[in-house]
Design a binder for these strands. Structure first.
Lengths: 266, 266
DNA sequence: TCTGTTGTTTCACGATATGGAATATAGTAT
DNA sequence: ATACTATATTCCATATCGTGAAACAACAGA
């Protein structure tokens, strides 16, 4: 019936007695870079909710400034309060706070931009980014979600998944962002095996043409891969010869952060 | 009874039929830079909610990754999903998108950091920031809330308030952040009158020692002050002699943005 | 003017959120 | 060890609060 693409109302059956909250949050999550503005009816349909219910929830979110309305179109947009809360979330993130000095050193040492990323659903989320000391590289990606299969950090995080979880992910087609993006499931599987073995991932022009990145996993006390860090920059600067030494730096930094998290190798 | 400071559950009576959502959002807003982690009981008490209710709401927020728990203390913290949503909110903010090129020009022209800020409750919220071309100035303040009475942008926004709204604000004591912070209500009132007349606000060492900023209002189609922009930097560089010319630049840039919003002077 | 679409309000119903009480799980002092 | 205190978590009967159909209002296009 719904012709508009469906938003998943979170298959994971939620806590009992939180329907309204879960629905409100699902509505919030419907907003994205691709669709930053929603009309009430469309959003109601996409979320599979009654129009009245949607209206009431959106009104509550608007009253709290988490949403705002476009005065011209009447459409809903994410509000300023979310920028504030997001900023607080960023600054209070313990992983970010721990990693920052290491990232700064890594960026200086490598002369490239360094990032800290975690997995959120089937994307990697940029938690922190230290700009390259070399000018240009102004990516400003903090808070951005990137496709997990086309990034070095993403591959590191994917490599840590169980075969079952991986199979589920690979069941759906992988979008190609560039000519180089790995879209063949078997090809990606082999790549991930390599990543798992070597403890480093590369992405050469797979996210965007001319951009190369090297990533390594951050491991916590329970030996779970909780994040990945990377250095990245123009492929012209991150030449094939430099990659091994960059990989070593990234791995070293990642191990340093892991140790702070209580991870002890062996 | 409640010895912990109370969180205001939003005096403005909310939309009927959204109690749970409003409460959940109030819980989210309880997290701040000053108090980034809450124990269940404390938060329940501060929000004036039953412990069970609080637990259920927090669980729902945690399930959606808007909150996470500190594995050591068991305390609640803002989660990564909020960083993602906050990033989306920032990038999709129309005011920010409009202002950015103007801000970039302003930063180049002045050689200082330029910011765009809006009012949210009794704070100013930094929506965008273009770092100074001169090194140092690395403030990284986007998403940060600053006290409205101690910032140039804040004064601009305060100056636009009605006398009644202002009186309400001035009823409570103004915290001093530095020696220079204006804490006397009458003194601030006079300052705001000046700002209203001249259309520019200054803050010299009022937010932090040695930091000076100049701000001007951004006005929309309905002649409402919706934001303020500023340039700021070390007081040693923003000398008394430079301030008039900087003020002119900021005002020019603000007028440019206002015009894009449909404001037409006269 | 009519018609289709949007956003908004109303309201009766019952599913759903609520909070007291009971239980579990620590952490601290005795 | 044991009792004690302060947490977090589960259970469950109750009625409050969220729900969605329907009706209304405000447009835009034909």
């Amino acid at each position: 019936m719904a012709s508009v693409q469906e938003i998943d109302l979170h298959a994971t059956e939620v806590y009992p007695g939180t329907q309204a909250v879960a629905r409100a949050l699902a509505l919030l999550k419907a907003f994205s870079d691709a669709q930053p503005e929603w009309a009430l009816s469309d959003l109601a349909q996409a979320a599979g909710l009654n129009k009245t219910t949607t209206f009431r929830l959106l009104s509550a979110l608007e009253a709290e400034r988490l949403l705002m309305r476009n005065p011209l179109s009447g459409g809903y947009r994410l509000g300023v309060e979310l920028i504030a809360i997001g900023g607080t979330a960023m600054r209070s993130n313990p992983l970010r706070a721990m990693s920052r000095p290491v990232l700064v050193t890594l960026a200086e040492q490598s002369g490239e931009a360094a990032t800290l990323e975690v997995q959120v659903e089937n994307c990697v989320l940029v938690i922190d980014e230290i700009a390259s000391s070399n000018p240009m590289g102004m990516t400003q990606d903090v808070g951005n979600r990137l496709p997990i299969h086309a990034t070095a950090t993403g591959k590191v995080l994917l490599a840590a998944r169980t075969d079952a979880a991986l199979a589920g992910f690979l069941a759906e087609p992988l979008p190609a962002l560039t000519e180089q993006t790995i879209v063949d499931p078997d090809c990606l599987r082999r790549e991930l095996a390599r990543v798992r073995q070597e403890g480093v991932a590369l992405a050469v022009g797979e996210l965007e043409p001319g951009f190369t990145a090297v990533a390594a996993p951050v491991v916590d006390r329970e030996r779970a891969v909780v994040a990945a860090i990377s250095v990245g920059g123009p492929s012209l600067r991150l030449t094939r010869e430099r990659l091994p030494s960059l990989a070593a730096m990234v791995q070293m930094a990642a191990r340093q952060i892991s140790r702070q998290l209580g991870y002890w190798p062996g």
